[in-house]
Design a protein around this nucleic acid. Structure first.
Lengths: 179, 179
DNA sequence: AGGGTTAGTTGCAAAACGAGACTAAATCGC
DNA sequence: GCGATTTAGTCTCGTTTTGCAACTAACCCT
């Protein structure tokens, strides 16, 4: 995959990563969420090289995640603001933060905490079924082909899943009572 | 930032991205979630270079997200399996997929759909407050310093947030009724 | 013995990145 | 009025990281 092809894949994760999937982009978004709008502030907070920052901001603007707008005319100066699509990345960032809190802690607790206005105390955001409110896990969810997946592709994937499932039989044999 | 420093930052997003934040890693995890365990299957599904895949798998094992275990002895062959930390990335991947579904669609609908066993119909996972069940947005949540953040760092950040908030006053002036 | 399978390693060329110098246009201090 | 400063970049160059293809290793099948 030569990375332009990300958008062509029949997978929203791949598409999303085509926009967001490099070392800096999601950190840039984190800064944007914390209110940063200006080139030099992004640069200093992150320590990212100028040319790289230029490139990433441009991509994010192209992807419709940030908006470049003038905040003064003389001399012309621009700032980068979250669009609605950008604001909608909230969930991705919270999910990442939660995972980091749970698995990459140094023992002193989370560096930052989410507070829900109204409840007014630290929470750990939960990913739930919008219908019944139950938390979603690997075991109680399933990924099925949607309308955006061509039938041919769906069939090929189904066959591949079958082939791989067959491998699992082999691995489970060595006296493993484990799931 | 020279990328070893990710783990040292007082930010769980940065820490998480220190493990997951490159072009391939989250795609590798997507494959792992779909049941893939073997080197050559990862390689063929993703089209990633062998040496890069070797490196990424090793990092994921070091990070405790995947586990490398033998599935046969003669010749020795290994497979890569999700650990509990790996399985817990479910939320991150679902968040990414949801965002991609909403903002990077080609008009034909989502390629894949989440089905909650029990409800048995396609859902869009929701990120909610675990206490009251209300959906979390940028506007009804707040990030505050947690116990893992040194007081000195917290103070510095507070001052910086203040400086940046001052910039916003300038931007809002040009006859913008917008929030 | 020859070919196939699986999980890599190695070497080399191409692309991406990092650091710092440099530019442009206007304002600030004096 | 003049040099320093601010902001948002661009340019250059040396280092890293990738991608690709060839090769290795250890075993199986026929």
């Amino acid at each position: 995959m030569r990375w332009k092809e990300a958008a062509d894949q029949y997978c929203s994760i791949a598409r999303a990563l085509g926009v967001l999937g490099d070392r800096w982009t999601l950190l840039i978004m984190r800064e944007a969420f914390s209110g940063v709008r200006r080139f030099d502030d992004f640069r200093q907070h992150l320590g990212v090289a100028r040319n790289v920052l230029t490139d990433r901001l441009q991509r994010l603007v192209d992807a419709g995640v940030l908006e470049r707008r003038a905040y003064q005319d003389n001399p012309p100066r621009h700032e980068y603001r979250l669009t609605e699509a950008g604001r909608d990345l909230n969930g991705v960032l919270l999910a990442l933060m939660g995972w980091g809190d749970r698995w990459l802690t140094d023992g002193s607790g989370p560096p930052m905490q989410v507070v829900h206005r109204g409840c007014d105390q630290p929470i750990t955001p939960a990913l739930v079924c919008p219908d019944c409110g139950e938390p979603l896990t690997t075991r109680n969810t399933q990924l099925l082909a949607g309308p955006g997946l061509p039938v041919q592709t769906a069939k090929e994937r189904e066959a591949e899943v079958e082939r791989i499932r067959a491998q699992h039989a082999q691995s489970e044999q060595p006296s493993n009572t484990e799931a």
